[in-house]
C-alpha cells in the first residue's frame, strides 16, 4: 500500500516548508509529489537531481508537474512508474478543498495517511474571518486530520493561546500541534507501514512528544480495535497498531488525528501491538492504559 498525504493550508502558512521537511527528513522512502497549484515549485535545491519537461527527478523520488489531464491521471502516472513511489505527497493550493484531494487517497493501492493543514498562527484569526477566504480556511481546518499551528516562535504567547482557544471552540474535534518552520518529527507527520520494521514502533526521543506502547500476546477483534480508536482523545496525534492470529492474517490500525482506518492485512506477527504519539505533558498514558484494558479486556 502506498501512503497518500495531503498538505493544505492558506497562502504563506508553510506548506512548501512542510513538504521540504517531509522530503528531507524521511530516510530511504521514495516519494511521488504532486503540486496542485500554479507558480514556482520551491523544492530545496539539494533534493533535485534533474529537471525534465513534465517531471522533476528528486534524489528520493519525483515531482509530476502536469495536472493538465486531471489529478487522477497524474496519480496513475506515478503508479505506473517503473519503481512507483512508496509515499505520495500532495501540496494543495492555498484555496484548495483539501477534503476533495484527500479522496484520491482512497484509490485502490493507496491509503490516506493524513490530511495535514498548516496554519500561520500570526494570521489565523484574521484569515478565518476574511470575507474572501474565511469559509475556505475554516473548511480546510475542518477537513484536517492534523492542524499544524506554524510560526509559533514569531508571536506573543497570548496570541498563541487565543488561537488554540479559537480552534478548540470552533473545531473541537480537530487535533492541533504547534511548530516552528514545520519542524515536526516524521512519525507525527506520517505513519509508517507497520510491517516494515519492528523498530519503527519505537518513537524516537523527542522533547515535545511522548509515545505510549501496548503489547498483547493475543489477537483482538475489529470491534475491539474500533472501540479503542474511538476512545482516543484529542491529546493523541497518531496511533497505529497491528493485530494478528496464528495464520498470519490480521488487522492494521492507523489513526491520524480524527481519522481512523482499520484494514485487513497479511503477514502480521502473532499478537497485538499498539503505539500512540501525543504531546509531552498532555498525553495521559494512564488513561490510555485504562482505555486499552477496557477495549481488550485487560489481557497483557
Amino acid at each position: 500500500m502506498i501512503a497518500f498525504t495531503v498538505i493544505g493550508g492558506y497562502l504563506g502558512a508553510g506548506k512548501t516548508t512542510l513538504l521540504n521537511h517531509f522530503l528531507t527528513q524521511s530516510s530511504g522512502r521514495r516519494f511521488g509529489v504532486l503540486i496542485n497549484d500554479f507558480g514556482a515549485i520551491n523544492i530545496d535545491a539539494e533534493l533535485i537531481a534533474s529537471r525534465g519537461e513534465t517531471t522533476i527527478t528528486l534524489t528520493n523520488g519525483c515531482i509530476c508537474c502536469s495536472l493538465a489531464d486531471g489529478f487522477l491521471n497524474a496519480v496513475d502516472q506515478l503508479l505506473a512508474l517503473e519503481t512507483p513511489p512508496e509515499h505520495i505527497v500532495v501540496e494543495a493550493s492555498g484555496v484548495a478543498e483539501v477534503n476533495q484531494l484527500a479522496q484520491y487517497g482512497h484509490l485502490p493501492g493507496l491509503f490516506l495517511d493524513g490530511v495535514l493543514v498548516v496554519v500561520d498562527v500570526e494570521t489565523l484569526l484574521e484569515k478565518v474571518n476574511d470575507r474572501y477566504v474565511g469559509q475556505t480556511v475554516r473548511r480546510q481546518i475542518n477537513s484536517a486530520d492534523l492542524v499544524i499551528l506554524n510560526k509559533v516562535d514569531l508571536i506573543d504567547p497570548s496570541v498563541l493561546k487565543a488561537c488554540f482557544e479559537w480552534l478548540k471552540q470552533a473545531h473541537p474535534k480537530v487535533r492541533v500541534v504547534s511548530s516552528v518552520r514545520c519542524e515536526l518529527p516524521l512519525p507525527v507527520l506520517a505513519g509508517q507501514p507497520m510491517h516494515e520494521r519492528r523498530s519503527e514502533f519505537l518513537f524516537p526521543e523527542h522533547a515535545h512528544y511522548t509515545s505510549w506502547n501496548h503489547v498483547l500476546n493475543d489477537p483482538v477483534t475489529r470491534e475491539q480495535l474500533e472501540f479503542f480508536a474511538e476512545g482516543l482523545d484529542a491529546t493523541v496525534i497518531r496511533a497505529k497498531g497491528t493485530s494478528g492470529g496464528p495464520s498470519g492474517s490480521g488487522l492494521q490500525l492507523q489513526v491520524v488525528g480524527r481519522r481512523v482506518q482499520i484494514t485487513s492485512m497479511n503477514n502480521v506477527g502473532l499478537g497485538t501491538r499498539l503505539v500512540a504519539i501525543g504531546l509531552a505533558g498532555q498525553i495521559d498514558t494512564r488513561s490510555l492504559d485504562a482505555l486499552a484494558a477496557q477495549s481488550f479486556g485487560g489481557a497483557r
Binding site: 503540486i35 496542485n36 497549484d37 514556482a40 508537474c65 502536469s66 495536472l67 493538465a68 493550493s93
Partner: peptide, 10 residues
C-alpha cells in the same frame, strides 16, 4: 488560461 495547475508557472 495563464497556466494549468501543477505547472511551474512564471
Amino acid at each position: 488560461l495563464p497556466a494549468m495547475p501543477g505547472a511551474t508557472a512564471d
